[in-house]
Simulated scan of single mutants.
Amino acid sequence: MLGRHLIGARSHQTLQKALHTRPFAHNIAELNQQLDDIIDYYNNHRPHRALNRRAWPPESRHVGG
């Protein structure tokens, strides 16, 4: 589900940095799981500057197209 919400000029760099902190993926399934985990953190759990370093509240998260 890569790219579902992680969109922007820095998304490629963000993914590269996050992947370098994880163990090497030995197959595509492992890589896809790592990408899903990174994107979930980026979209749902990381502190956001506009929210006073808090994550988006669950009720404000938009899912779907």
Rank of each mutant, 00 (worst) to 15 (best):
R22D: 04
A9T: 14
F24H: 10
Y42S: 06
R10W: 13
E59S: 09
P57G: 02
Q16S: 10
S60E: 15
A29F: 13
I7M: 09
Q34V: 05
G65Q: 12
R10N: 15
T21K: 09
A18I: 01
I38K: 00
N44I: 05
R10F: 15
T21M: 08
Q16F: 11
M1C: 13
H12R: 15
Q34Y: 05
R22F: 00
A25G: 00
V63W: 12
R4F: 10
G8W: 06
L15S: 00
G64T: 02
L35S: 00
A29I: 11
W56Y: 10
H5A: 11
A18F: 00
Q34P: 05
G8M: 04
N44M: 08
P23M: 02
P58T: 07
A18T: 02
H62Q: 10
L2Q: 15
H12F: 15
L35A: 01
G65C: 14
N32P: 05
Q33N: 10
R46E: 05
T21D: 07
P58Q: 12
G3V: 04
R61K: 10
Q13A: 10
L2M: 13
A50I: 06
D37T: 07
H5P: 05
R46Q: 06
M1E: 12
T14L: 12
T14I: 13
Q33M: 09
H5Y: 14
R10L: 13
P47L: 05
I28A: 12
T14S: 10
G3Q: 04
R4M: 09
A29L: 10
R61F: 04
R10T: 13
S11M: 05
S11C: 06
R22N: 04
L31I: 04
A25P: 01
Q13M: 09
Y42Q: 08
L2H: 14
L6K: 02
R46S: 01
L15C: 03
W56S: 11
F24Y: 13
G64K: 00
G8D: 01
R10P: 08
D37Y: 01
H20T: 14
P57V: 00
I38D: 01
A29M: 09
R4I: 10
D37A: 11
R49W: 06
R53W: 12
R10A: 15
W56T: 12
N32I: 01
I28M: 08
R53Q: 11
I28Y: 09
H45N: 08
P57L: 01
G64R: 02
Q33S: 09
H20A: 12
R49K: 14
D37Q: 08
T14H: 08
V63R: 10
I38E: 02
Q13T: 08
S11G: 00
L31K: 03
V63G: 14
A29E: 13
A29D: 15
R54V: 07
G65K: 13
A55G: 03
N52S: 09
R46F: 03
A55D: 04
I39A: 05
R61S: 03
E59N: 09
H62V: 15
D40Y: 04
D37K: 02
A50C: 10
H26Q: 13
I38N: 00
Q34W: 02
